[in-house]
Computed example of a mutant assay.
Amino acid sequence: MERETSVSAVFEGGEDIAAARDLARDFLETLREKCGVTVSPRALGAVRLVVSELVTNARKYAPGPCLLTLGLHEGTVEVTVWDSSTTLPLTLPPDPTRVGQHGLEIVRAVCHGFEAHREPVGKRVRAVVPLADEPDGIAADRRTV
Rank of each mutant, 00 (worst) to 15 (best):
V55G: 00
T86M: 12
H117R: 15
I138G: 14
A20T: 05
A9S: 00
L72G: 01
D136K: 05
T56E: 11
P63L: 11
G36N: 03
A18I: 14
V145N: 07
I138T: 15
V81I: 05
F114S: 01
A46G: 02
R25W: 08
V77E: 02
G137T: 03
E29R: 14
P96K: 04
P65M: 02
I138Y: 14
P93V: 05
T86I: 09
C35H: 15
L49W: 09
S85W: 02
E29N: 13
V81N: 06
V10K: 08
M1Y: 09
S85E: 09
V129F: 00
D22S: 11
L31D: 00
T56A: 06
T86V: 14
G122S: 01
D95T: 00
E15P: 06
L28Q: 08
A9F: 00
P130L: 09
I17W: 03
R42A: 13
V7G: 03
S52E: 15
T144E: 10
L131D: 00
L72R: 09
A9G: 01
A139L: 10
H73L: 11
G71H: 02
R25P: 05
R143T: 07
H117M: 14
S6V: 02
P96V: 10
C111E: 04
V81C: 02
F11S: 10
R32V: 04
L23G: 04
P93D: 02
V79Y: 02
L92Y: 12
M1R: 14
V125P: 06
S6C: 06
P135K: 04
H117V: 14
S52W: 04
T87H: 10
A62E: 13
G75F: 07
Y61T: 08
T56C: 05
R126I: 07
L28S: 08
P89M: 05
N57S: 11
Q101V: 11
A43G: 03
P65H: 09
A9K: 03
D83M: 07
R124L: 09
R59I: 13
R32T: 13
L70C: 06
R59L: 14
N57E: 09
V7P: 01
V125Q: 06
K34F: 15
T91K: 10
G64Y: 02
E29Q: 15
